[in-house]
Amino acid sequence: MKDVHINREPVELYKILKFEGMTESGAEAKIAVASGLVKVNGATETRKRKKIISGDIIMYNNEKMYVRLV
């Protein structure tokens, strides 16, 4: 599981995918979320602007990311 460090809360879901290099662009990240390819805390998430906070677990493309506030 990969740790994702954020310096403020909340952060929009698609931005985490983009900044962590999981997608090549913000547009691609939004499409992935809207298509139901992303899970947050075990549940499929289709809201691209879903607010992510420390402790959330994101799963995309068979990779888990644990969000931590630093």
Rank of each mutant, 00 (worst) to 15 (best):
D56K: 06
D56F: 06
V70K: 15
E28G: 03
K64Y: 10
A32F: 03
E63V: 14
G26L: 09
E12H: 01
T46Q: 09
I6F: 02
S54V: 06
V38Q: 06
T23E: 12
G42D: 05
E12F: 00
D56Q: 05
V70N: 14
M1W: 00
Y14F: 13
T44Y: 02
I53N: 13
G42Y: 05
K18N: 09
R68K: 14
L13T: 02
V67M: 06
A43Q: 14
L17D: 02
G26K: 09
T44A: 03
H5V: 15
T23A: 10
I31Q: 13
K39F: 02
R68A: 03
N41E: 05
T44F: 03
L69I: 11
S25T: 15
S25D: 07
S35Y: 02
E9S: 08
M22N: 11
E28H: 13
A29N: 08
Y66E: 01
M65A: 12
N41G: 07
N7D: 07
G26C: 10
M65S: 07
A29M: 10
K15F: 00
N61D: 15
G21N: 06
V4Y: 11
I16R: 11
K18P: 00
N61K: 14
K30R: 15
L17M: 07
S25Q: 07
K18R: 13
R47V: 07
E9V: 07
S54C: 13
K15N: 12
M1G: 12
V38M: 07
V38P: 03
S54W: 01
E9Q: 15
M59E: 15
S54L: 03
M22P: 00
K15Y: 01
A43D: 06
Y14I: 01
V38S: 08
H5Q: 14
R49H: 01
T46P: 00
I57Q: 09
E9K: 09
L37N: 14
N7F: 12
H5I: 15
V38G: 06
V4Q: 05
A27L: 04
T46H: 01
T44P: 00
G36W: 03
K51C: 01
A34W: 00
Y14W: 15
D56L: 09
A32D: 07
R68W: 02
K39V: 04
G36I: 10
M1S: 11
L13Q: 03
E45T: 13
R68Y: 08
M22T: 06
I31G: 00
V4F: 10
H5N: 14
K18E: 04
V33H: 03
N62K: 14
E28N: 11
V33K: 08
G55P: 02
A29K: 07
V4E: 10
I52P: 09
Y14A: 05
G36R: 08
A43R: 12
N61Y: 06
